[in-house]
């Protein structure tokens, strides 16, 4: 859960946030590619969820399992929801939404890792 793939999800999310921030600052209309990148994030988090749950089943470590699964299962909902919410929105607000989502996802990963290692 603290491996390379989790780091990749964080880096890609931050890259998406940075990309959206460029659109926001330059006041460029949101591109299809930027909009679709939210689905890439969603896919990464679905893989993370499957991987995390498999890893959990194979481990006898003591930690808050319900929380762990809850975070993993719900995290893909955020980029999927924002993808749906920003469809057809080419304004700066659309880009701002993607910035927020790109910043929230790494925080979620950090929180998931905290739960995994036994912290509250």
């Amino acid at each position: 859960m603290t491996g390379l793939f989790a780091t990749i999800t964080m880096v890609v999310s931050l890259a998406m946030a940075a990309w959206a921030l460029v659109h926001l600052v330059l006041n460029r209309p949101m591109s299809r590619a930027l909009h679709s990148s939210q689905l890439v994030i969603a896919a990464l988090f679905i893989v993370l969820a499957i991987g995390g749950i498999v890893q959990m089943i194979g481990s006898d470590q003591d930690f808050a399992r319900a929380e762990f699964v809850g975070y993993l299962v719900l995290s893909p909902v955020i980029p999927i929801g924002s993808w749906w919410w920003t469809r057809g929105d080419r304004t700066r607000i659309g880009s701002a939404i993607i910035v927020v989502v790109g910043l929230v996802m790494p925080v979620l990963v950090a929180r998931i890792q905290q739960v995994w290692s036994g912290g509250g």
């Binding site: 975070y71 719900l74 919410w85 920003t86 929105d89 701002a96 939404i97 927020v100």
Partner: peptide, 18 residues
């Protein structure tokens, strides 16, 4: 408001799950 809704939605999901 569209941005506000997203932040609220994230909070709603997180608070409900927790």
């Amino acid at each position: 408001a569209r941005l506000l809704v997203v932040v609220y939605a994230i909070f709603a999901i997180a608070a409900t799950a927790r």
